[in-house]
Design a binder for these strands. Structure first.
Lengths: 317, 317
DNA sequence: CTGAAAGCGCTTACAG
DNA sequence: CTGAAAGCGCTTACAG
């Protein structure tokens, strides 16, 4: 009771207290945390599990900010963080190994990665194992806790920024507008445009992108002065075409990136939007800890706004 | 015995085996890892502990590659990884909290961070708690396991590269040559120069760096065609002076960075040396696991070579 | 304040 | 193959 600092029901005298501490010092004693965990029934450990291998550098770089946020919040709430790396050679990685939940050392887990297996998620739910999923999934809302990015506000902010730089004709590059985050990006930009007299937004898709000359024609015919990259799949090819065009960036054409992975672009400081991944991780832990403390009765989707970052690929007209 | 896949001393019939597995499935049973750990006396968890806060982005970015390597190797050896984040607000962070070892949940730990407290290290040693330290420390070699970077081979390789590009007069920028890694960098470069007729290396220190004009004079008087940044403390100021000089990089002057943190330079792809931090983390875990398995009788310093990376700040004469 | 006991959920000899 | 028992090192009532 002295070492655990529990002000339990039994009062302990100052002198006794000191004797206990002195004895511990003398013996070099420290409690066995495993025995404590077993007796207490609570481990104060939060798991971080990625469905994707974290080995390839790019993936590690992508998921690390989530982990940074998870660590920060877990630490503040008095939890350690465990990474389940054991026997996880294959991708996608599995929560259930030989049919058994491999996460049980953690009181609950933050799940990240692109393609969570709905079967695994459902089984976790059925077992009543606490988890928060980062990203969208196929399980109906109201049955799981998720934390997702809301792309609308930052897209709005970014488009407003272009408009304030006197851009009036924006080109919006996206192929698959059925995706939720593409829609959000479009909605944000459209709202900014709708608020502004004489402002216009033109949606460009992959058909505009056969070669550099054609792209230039499309841009000039529409009088586009700023290009918004909203679709990840179009970025790498398009950016090459753009850099081939005899146009100066950003003087002749401004570029705005609403996609998340801009680190592999041939640009040092693109004007862009960040996913705020550390904040997402932090919010996920906050939600998870509330559930572990039994303070939650229902499941929900929590939204985290992206952050707009001004770089050097945009300039005033 | 069935679930743990132990081919123990007791043979188990196929039919029994299947009955057991079927029962586990039916009950949704999975073993309590905490109870297993307590009974077995081994946790199969490796700790990763940083003496520095990992919260600020820059530090997180710096230490993450170590963690990537630790994760990779730990996973392959069948260990999970725990991050000790609990109650670690102050910097430098402490292994001993209220006089007690807070790492005991891990079988052993990989320690990183700049200023390890020798007192804490000694106490870990006295307790016989297994650890591997990344970096140098004040404890005598032979009493701790450390993994350090060897800067000599990559420095040699980098200088050779410059020489093959027909550079003969290299400027070597370093202030404090008493530091071990500055010496290694110098030794590697010097060896490459010594091997080459008519090649020369001039050590420049902060006195050469009052302003851009003077730096240019120093460079031209010595006939220096390539500048080697070997001292971290000189980089940020010097690089500004260099970029102010009316010289084209790399056509008129090649730049080589032997310092580790080049991510904050105003250059996209500097020619540089990488610390191979993931390999360092990996090697640290290999050493730690050997110790955990009782395969080690002594302590040693393990060296990991850096990696030379060609960028676009160097060109042929 | 102190001591003895049960229990956390496993593993591991040991006897049948 | 099966069953009963001790033990891992704590926490937590409970009796003194």
């Amino acid at each position: 009771m002295v070492l655990n600092q529990t002000q339990g029901r039994v009062p302990i005298g100052q002198e006794t207290r000191e004797r206990v501490i002195a004895a511990a010092q003398e013996l070099g004693y420290s409690p066995n945390p495993v025995a404590q965990m077993l007796a207490r029934g609570s481990n104060r450990i939060i798991g971080f599990f990625s469905f994707e291998k974290t080995f390839p550098y790019t993936a590690a770089d992508f998921y690390n900010p989530y982990l940074v946020g998870v660590q920060r919040e877990a630490g503040q709430q008095g939890y350690d963080v465990i990474l389940f790396t054991r026997n996880q050679a294959e991708t996608p990685r599995k929560v259930y190994q030989d049919g058994m939940n491999s996460l049980r050392l953690a009181d609950g887990v933050v799940l990240v990665g692109n393609y969570p297996d709905p079967i695994e998620l459902q089984r976790l739910t059925k077992e009543n194992y606490p988890f928060v999923l980062v990203g969208r999934c196929k399980i109906p809302q109201g049955e799981v806790d998720t934390v997702v990015n809301d792309h609308t506000p930052a897209s709005y902010e970014a488009a407003r920024y272009l408009i304030e730089l006197n851009h009036r004709h924006l080109g919006f590059l996206a192929d698959d507008l059925s995706l939720a985050y593409h829609q959000e990006r479009l909605a944000g930009c459209q709202r900014a445009v709708d608020e502004t007299p004489h402002a216009r937004l033109t949606i460009l898709n992959s058909q505009a992108l056969t070669d550099s000359a054609e792209l230039k024609t499309v841009i000039q015919e529409n009088g586009i002065t700023a290009l918004i990259f909203a679709d990840r799949s179009l970025v790498s090819t398009t950016i090459k075409l753009v850099l081939e065009m005899p146009l100066r960036i950003p003087e002749d054409l401004s570029l705005l990136f609403l996609v998340s992975n801009t680190w592999d672009l041939p640009l040092t400081r693109p004007t862009r939007v960040s996913l705020n991944r550390d904040v997402v991780g932090q919010v996920a832990v906050q939600r998870l800890v509330k559930r572990l403390e039994g303070a939650l009765n229902e499941y929900q989707q929590t939204q985290v706004s992206c952050r707009f970052i001004v770089g050097d690929t945009t300039a005033a007209r």
